[in-house]
């Protein structure tokens, strides 16, 4: 395989090594295994539990969500660290890529914990629908996140593809202020070739990769919307954000 050349003269052996490393990193750093998610898939929050979430004060539910997001982000940081080549980037670029991409990866990973058959997502141990997040007061964001998860699920990605797509989203030259964009670009290109290779193997649909890549602008729009909603919330509840939100969440998202 090492003598067989793939795109851009990268050997097929190297593409395979990159793919295997990223898939392993993904599987080691997912909060739930595929089997665990399958077992939980039909365990939904009861009517009373949903009512309880709905009747929470707005700031309490925001805090709960911030805690869950922060927890998920810690796993994404660990995923990034295990990707060969990531820790070889300069520290500035490691931080920049994570700061700008971690929430996007959390949203990609969320499709694993989304049941498209009843439009529910895993939250605090059980599945629940959009109405569970009503008290957040940002229906547009919640509904956009659910729409995104449903649309990503419709592509029926394998764990391998989710892993490589997550890495491609994270290691992106589109982020401003990179100090070594060439180095990031080289890594990104290899990840894309590996993703392309796997998708061609797994999908009959020739446009599957194009369809997947076309979801990236939505991811970025969701993160912008999240920042805007956070700013609006912070204006109304500055104390909640300053005192009760996880420090990592504030470090990543505070204006």
């Amino acid at each position: 395989q090492d003598s067989q050349l793939g795109p851009n003269n990268v050997s097929m052996g190297e593409l395979d090594r990159i793919a295997q490393n990223i898939i392993k990193s993904h599987l080691e750093t997912c909060q739930y295994t595929t089997e665990e998610l399958q077992q939980l898939a039909w365990q939904t929050h009861s009517y009373e539990e949903v009512k309880m979430y709905q009747s929470k004060p707005r700031d309490a539910l925001w805090q709960q969500c911030a805690i869950q997001i922060t927890h998920a982000i810690q796993y994404v940081v660990e995923f990034a660290k295990r990707i060969s080549g990531f820790m070889e980037l300069c520290q500035n670029d490691q931080i920049l890529l994570l700061k700008s991409g971690c929430l996007e990866v959390v949203l990609v990973r969320m499709c694993r914990a989304f049941n498209p058959l009843n439009n529910t997502v895993l939250f605090e141990g059980k599945y629940g629908g959009m109405q569970m997040f009503k008290a957040l007061g940002c229906d547009d964001l919640v509904s956009a996140v659910f729409d995104f998860a449903k649309s990503l699920c419709s592509l029926q990605l394998t764990e391998e593809e989710i892993a490589l797509f997550s890495a491609a989203v994270l290691i992106s030259t589109d982020r401003p202020w990179l100090m070594e964009p060439r180095k990031v670009q080289k890594l990104q290109e290899k990840i894309y070739f590996a993703l392309q290779h796997i998708m061609q193997k797994n999908h009959m649909d020739e446009d599957a990769l194009a369809k997947l890549i076309s979801r990236i602008p939505t991811l970025s729009a969701l993160c912008t919307l999240h920042t805007e909603e956070l700013q609006a919330f912070q204006q109304l509840h500055p104390e909640t954000v300053n005192v009760l939100f996880p420090p990592l969440y504030k470090e990543l998202f505070n204006p």
């Binding site: 080691e28 750093t29 660990e78 660290k81 470090e251």
Partner: peptide, 20 residues
């Protein structure tokens, strides 16, 4: 570095899946 103290720390820490 100061601005991203926690992220910086997380990047420096050596962790295993068990720690997660």
């Amino acid at each position: 570095k100061e601005k991203h103290k926690i992220l910086h720390q997380l990047l420096q820490n050596s962790t295993s899946p068990v720690d997660l």
